[in-house]
């Protein structure tokens, strides 16, 4: 019959306590400034990944940023909404038939859904019509209670006095939500943020 001596039990307990507390203290070193910044930035990044509105239009191409946003949102409780804005010219009624633009919207949003699926996320898509992209984005962001608006590379057919494009300038001036803008380094499609031409399919 084994008998545990009380002094032995006390020493055994003390050994476990001493080793555990030594390890705990060692592994919980106070962070330095660089680590504090990194931790804080990471926390912030988690917060902004709450509800994200990714904007597409004829001039705004957000596929690459959509993929980035999907990666960011993965594993967190985040809602991704892909919004396509069809700009209706003032010369037409707002509900005029625009089959080419609607087809383009459908194609872009299907691709956005696929990007979300690849990242393991279910995303919402919506198409909206407006005279201008900027107000439509502000309206949608309000309705979706977005924490972040993502606007991809901007390609405007003509310069209209806004260096980053009228839609982006408008959104920046009108919203209180954070905006993530992807500024492409080139118009030629060889920037990392531009989708660029699709690779040729192998025959």
């Amino acid at each position: 019959m084994l008998a545990v001596h009380p002094v032995g039990a006390v020493i055994a307990t003390a050994i476990v306590a001493a080793i555990s507390s030594t390890m705990y203290r060692m592994l919980n070193a106070p962070s330095n400034r660089a680590e504090q910044i990194a931790q804080h930035a990471d926390r912030q990044a988690k917060e902004i990944a709450g509800d994200v509105l990714v904007v597409f239009s004829a001039d705004i191409h957000s596929e690459v940023l959509m993929a980035l946003a999907a990666r960011m949102a993965k594993g967190r409780q985040a809602q991704l909404v892909a919004l396509y804005v069809i700009e209706v010219p003032y010369t037409l009624p707002i509900d005029a038939e625009l089959p080419q633009q609607e087809r383009e919207a459908l194609q872009v949003l299907t691709a956005a859904e696929e990007i979300g699926r690849k990242a393991g996320l279910e995303i919402q898509t919506r198409t909206t019509r407006d005279r201008q992209t900027g107000p439509a984005v502000i309206q949608a962001a309000r309705e979706e209670s977005a924490n972040l608006i993502v606007m991809g590379t901007y390609r405007e057919s003509r310069y209209a006095g806004a260096p980053m494009g009228q839609a982006i300038e408008y959104v920046l001036s009108q919203t209180h939500t954070d905006v993530l803008i992807g500024v492409s380094s080139s118009m030629e499609g060889d920037s990392m943020l531009s989708l660029g031409p699709l690779p040729l399919r192998k025959k």
């Binding site: 084994l2 001596h5 032995g8 050994i15 476990v16």
Partner: peptide
């Protein structure tokens, strides 16, 4: 090793040690 030595010591102090 840290885990092994801790287990050796704890079990030995409990089971076979006498002051």
């Amino acid at each position: 090793d840290v885990v092994t030595e801790t287990i050796i010591l704890v079990s030995a102090f409990l089971l076979v040690w006498n002051p």
